Computed example of a mutant assay.
Amino acid sequence: MSPARSFLALLCLPSTAALVAPRTRPARATALHADADAISDFCKGTNAFWKSLIIPVVRDYADVKPKGTADVDDFLSVVTAAPETPGIPRPVWLTIAASVPTGLIWYGWYKYSASSRQLFQYELETEGRVSGCGGYGTLFPFVFGVIIGGPLALVGFSGGDAILEAAGLWILLGQVNLYRRVNDCFPGEEPLHAWWALLPPPLDVVVGLRQVHFLSEFWKKERSLPAGGDAVAEKYFPFISAPRFTLKEFARTPSMWFWFTKDWDDFDVPILKD
């Protein structure tokens, strides 16, 4: 099975499982567990393969450490800390403050560390199997695809564009899957619409910021830390921390957009009603 099809199967699995009652369909439930195990094996194998290509000194630094390994009492310590499990909370304000000055380079580290790698290890320790390809298996196929496909496309090699497109598809499917996995951290109160990752800007940015916020809140809970405290997500851009909403609700509710629109009335437009 191709990587893209494997990821699509992964994305469809939770919704399929929800339609099946194990008590009345034991054979089907067993098949779903087998599928989950197969997906887990694929994800672990993919992560292990790409991890083997990384030089040892980088690999040793980037490997997941036990809780409390890093001193995370200040900004610099948090942004440079290696992944831990449970994960280190990295709120929206910190993610923006570290990403913008570095031209989003640090954001790549965040996607590897705070999202994919820590969730991968957390799933492995709590459930015994994983539903994502980890930091190595998610980020590095994209990186290598750009490094190889970019120059080939520039010199007119016919396969260069295909490699770039495959790399883009891989990272996009990884984003959708990441949002699904963050939702799994909030059973019954799923905060994200995972498919919004497929929407054009700025809506894909909206769900991306919400993922950063809610994953940070989840790690706070796992570490018994106080919830909240992120002014960017809770005060200045309240849509980031708002409960799950639809596209129409977002469009008609300016009070959740920005701090300076918080007192605006909702738009009474028929097309924006759910």
Rank of each mutant, 00 (worst) to 15 (best):
R59T: 08
S99R: 01
P22N: 11
S216A: 07
L199T: 04
K44Q: 13
W259V: 15
I171P: 04
G229Q: 07
C133Q: 06
A62F: 13
R90N: 04
G103C: 03
A227N: 07
Q118K: 01
E189P: 00
K67T: 12
Y110R: 07
K111C: 10
L164D: 11
F7Y: 11
V207W: 00
R180L: 06
A197H: 00
A81V: 13
E249W: 14
A167Q: 07
R23C: 06
F42W: 11
L19W: 08
W109A: 14
S131D: 10
W259L: 15
V58I: 14
R117V: 03
G103D: 02
K221T: 05
W259P: 10
R59H: 11
F267K: 05
G108R: 03
T30F: 05
P56H: 11
E123G: 02
R181V: 08
V130M: 04
T126V: 12
D184G: 13
A242R: 14
T69L: 13
L53Q: 14
Y112L: 06
W93Y: 15
A29G: 06
E249D: 15
S15D: 10
P66A: 10
G156D: 08
T102H: 02
F157Q: 15
W170N: 12
A194K: 00
W195L: 12
M256G: 08
G135Q: 03
N47S: 07
A62V: 11
V100N: 07
Y112H: 05
V269L: 12
A62G: 11
D37C: 09
T253V: 02
R210I: 02
A4H: 07
L139I: 15
T102G: 03
V212Y: 00
L192I: 04
D204T: 08
V176L: 07
P254N: 08
R28L: 13
W196L: 01
T30P: 00
